[in-house]
Amino acid sequence: MKLFFRLGLLSALLLTMGCGPTNVAKTNNDVGMQTNSKYVSTVEPKGAIPVGEAREVIADGQEVTLVGLIGGSSKPFVDGLAAFTIVDPKVPYCADEEGCPTPWDYCCQTDAVKQNIATIKVVDEAGKLVAGNVKELLNVKELSTVVVQGKAKRDDQGNLTVAANQVYVRPGE
């Protein structure tokens, strides 16, 4: 009976402890490591402007260099396509100590995000959207700071999309 009691006690202890994952977002310190992708630039392009400013001054078809943080929704990456959204670095996101599991969705800044968001499509030499997992392709993750260079596409509703063939990922940001 002692054995049963000990086994019961051990089971109860294990059940109490649980094994749930910690759901607090990690910082992106390991981002910016080397990748062999031809779409990743090793040199940061000069004259990058933040997303919010670009939405005001950039016209349709114009070449643009944009800087922003990957985010804007709980799922900023498009599954199966090399496309993602970036947000102006001036828009604050939840700090680590707030314990938000998805700070990249800017849940407390939804109004600010609307005017400071752009969609980035990574395209090949022919201008065709690249298929695949963008996280692996560019070695990026949510809240990575990226500088993209490409052609802007604007519509009447003010949306901004950039077809970029080179993406620079700022290391450690």
């Binding site: 498009v78 993602f84 609307k114």
Partner: peptide
Amino acid sequence: LFCKERTD
């Protein structure tokens, strides 16, 4: 992708 592009 369409939903992401048409943020409006």
